[in-house]
């Protein structure tokens, strides 16, 4: 007993003891310095340069590039796309997590792997597969043409490609969270006479709300910023099928750098807001996950 107590006290309290499991100060400083240099070269300077280049020609040029008609229509299309893609994937994420986390069935691991597939597919291929189906030479192309329905080089194609790219975000966040929380609370609600929807909205949803929000934030950031997949199906029609990232590309290729970086800076602000929200919500998710563990062990 005495021996274990003595060992437990030693680590933090005696400086001489601690040194054996730490690095010398100069090594520590060198490591921190190298890490920061790497992050500065590859992260911080690129981030700062977006704003610098956008504002280089003055605030007037900056705001003029944001309120110009094509920019406004690109911003609108980006918002519409995210407003459709995020709720769709949210409903899917909840349904998939409910089936996977609350029930035991065969083929579950295969299903989880299949949900992850869009993460490992190149964005260009994500766009291509919809062209193969809905494009003029695609399976449904002739039929769609006869009925005058446009999917490729139109808004529906952009939405579809975005849904594909952001498909796993919310499901991936919810599945481990709901698995950790177990099924006891829902079972209690059902035994007490609640129906399925009541159980979900009053018991499950309050438990997963932070995880759901976290997934939705990540999903939204990717939906608004997707470039490759959308680029394949969009057709780049100014003022009509251009999203913000595509608008950035067009301006850049026209050597209109100030305007390109101005629109890009809006997307960079979106990224920073996403990161800020993410770190706020991350704390809450960790808390609710711990709660889940407590319920399980109790």
């Amino acid at each position: 007993m005495d021996a274990t107590a003595a060992i437990a006290i030693t680590p933090a309290s005696q400086p001489g003891r601690v040194r054996a499991t730490q690095e010398a100060p100069w090594i520590r400083r060198a490591l921190i310095g190298t890490a920061l240099l790497f992050l500065t070269l590859f992260l911080f300077i690129p981030l700062v340069s977006v704003f610098y280049e956008g504002l280089k020609k003055g605030v007037d040029v900056y705001f003029a590039s944001l309120v110009e008609a094509d920019a406004v229509s690109a911003i609108k299309l980006t918002l519409i796309t995210a407003a459709i893609a995020v709720p769709l994937n949210l409903v899917f994420g909840v349904a998939a997590a409910w089936a996977i986390a609350k029930f035991e069935f065969r083929g579950k691991n295969l299903l989880i792997t299949l949900i992850d597939v869009p993460f490992s597919v190149s964005p260009v291929i994500a766009g291509l597969i919809y062209v193969l189906i809905f494009g003029l030479q695609g399976w449904l192309g002739p039929w769609l043409y006869e009925h005058d329905i446009k999917i490729i080089f139109a808004v529906p194609g952009i939405v579809l490609a975005t849904v594909f790219i952001t498909f796993p975000f919310i499901a991936r966040e919810l599945i481990p969270l709901m698995q950790a929380q177990g099924t006891e609370e829902e079972e209690a609600a059902v035994v007490l006479g609640a129906n399925g929807w009541q159980t979900f909205f009053r018991v499950t949803l309050p438990n997963i709300k932070w995880g759901l929000l976290y997934g939705a934030i990540l999903c939204n950031a990717r939906a608004m910023g997707e470039f490759g997949a959308v680029s394949v199906v969009s057709g780049h029609i100014r003022g009509s099928t251009n999203t913000m990232p595509l608008h950035v590309e067009i301006l850049y290729n026209e050597y209109n750098f100030a305007a390109a970086f101005a629109v890009a800076s809006l997307l960079a602000v979106l990224a920073l807001v996403t990161l800020a929200l993410k770190s706020v919500v991350e704390g809450r998710t960790a808390a609710s996950r711990e709660q889940g563990h407590d319920h399980r062990s109790a």
């Binding site: 981030l47 340069s49 977006v50 890009a264 960079a268 990224a271 996403t274």
Partner: peptide, 24 residues
Amino acid sequence: IIDALVDLPFALPTAVAGIALTSL
């Protein structure tokens, strides 16, 4: 802040990263 910023490449649209890195 640095810890939070590590995720920037996940959150920053790739086209923005592309033009920023190119100009740098």
